[in-house]
Write a protein that binds this DNA or RNA. Structure first.
Lengths: 182, 182
DNA sequence: AGTGAAGCGGGACGACCATCCCGATTGTAG
DNA sequence: CTACAATCGGGATGGTCGTCCCGCTTCACT
């Protein structure tokens, strides 16, 4: 899917691409996915054509925004797996993902099913956070730290629930779920 | 807000209104809120003008659909309060609400924040299901059946989570939450 | 049956938005 | 410094959808 043998972008193009990406990340995070592409272009101080050349569709743009974050989260997951026992590693990633989603409205919307196929985008980039969460769940269950009947689909729903919370003590909601999982 | 001193509708108008309402209930339940009003009119075999005369905006239409269901749920809540101890009554209503939402996609979407102000619509009709849930939470907490730090906002989020579940054993997810609340 | 108003159908209108296109501009190789 | 190709800007295009309007039909009261 990605361009192969891509010749290097001209300097101004590279600059504009980065500027669009940075603006889109901010805007998606604070205002969600429904922001028009025109608006992102306006705030990035480029034409709409510039946006749509670098990112042919809105979904492409969002996927690109997601990529950085996914990479970071995948590293975080690996660190947890290495340093903690299975139960804590799993719960730690779960908590991290929820906090991450709470700080990024677009990510939360994508997770709660509003259109974009977030898993495909992440997996395509080799940053399979979902897969890691799935594995960590299995390990935590084998270690007896998490109830055995819980499935990955359950987790997704429970994450969506925490993300739907609008208040000032997200951890209280997370703790309800953590208790329920154990 | 509602029309006062309304003179009775003509027989055909009443028939059409009911037909639109019934169709809208089905369509919203199975396909969600994004179905165009034109499509509802088409399936109800009326013109779009007929729909928009009875229900000036799409939100009005959805609110009317919700009303029946809300009334039923309010009665259910009252019955639970009368017949069960506070903890079971509360958990029973919570479970009922989630199952209800799972069977009605439009309701679930409205609860998870997609636009419509569901609480205002229900409260205006004197069917304050939310208020009942809130009261039952307080009672259950005073009876020691539910953790005291839980708030109504937490509940809404956790309900949204259960509604986000797509699978065949919703009760497994509900049970995670129930355990976490106790 | 007759008549006036209530109600009907569905096309028109306007708002919004993603995507595409093209003439003007700018970077860069030679 | 020149020339050309890459890139830019932002208006044009096409599609979707909610709401409104108006000429025609149907009801219901006398």
């Amino acid at each position: 899917m990605t361009d192969h043998a891509e010749r290097p972008l001209r300097a101004d193009a590279r600059r504009n691409r980065a500027r669009v990406l940075r603006t889109a990340a901010e805007v998606f995070a604070t205002e969600g996915l429904s922001v028009p592409v025109h608006e992102i272009a306006r705030r990035a101080e480029v034409g709409t054509g510039t946006v749509s050349r670098h990112f042919p569709t809105k979904e492409d743009l969002f996927a690109a925004v997601l990529l950085d974050r996914m990479r970071t989260l995948a590293d975080y997951a690996d660190a947890l797996t290495a340093e903690q026992e299975p139960g804590n590693a799993f719960l730690g990633l779960f908590t991290k993902l929820v906090h991450e989603g709470a700080a990024h409205r677009g990510l939360a919307e994508a997770l709660t099913g509003a259109g974009f196929d977030i898993e495909a985008a992440a997996a395509a980039a080799g940053c399979d956070v979902s897969g890691r969460l799935r594995d960590m769940l299995t390990n935590a269950q084998q270690a007896g730290a998490i109830r055995p009947e819980i499935t990955y689909a359950d987790l997704k729903a429970l994450m969506a629930g925490c993300l739907a919370y609008e208040g000032d003590d997200l951890d209280r909601v997370i703790n309800v779920v953590r208790r329920g999982l154990q």
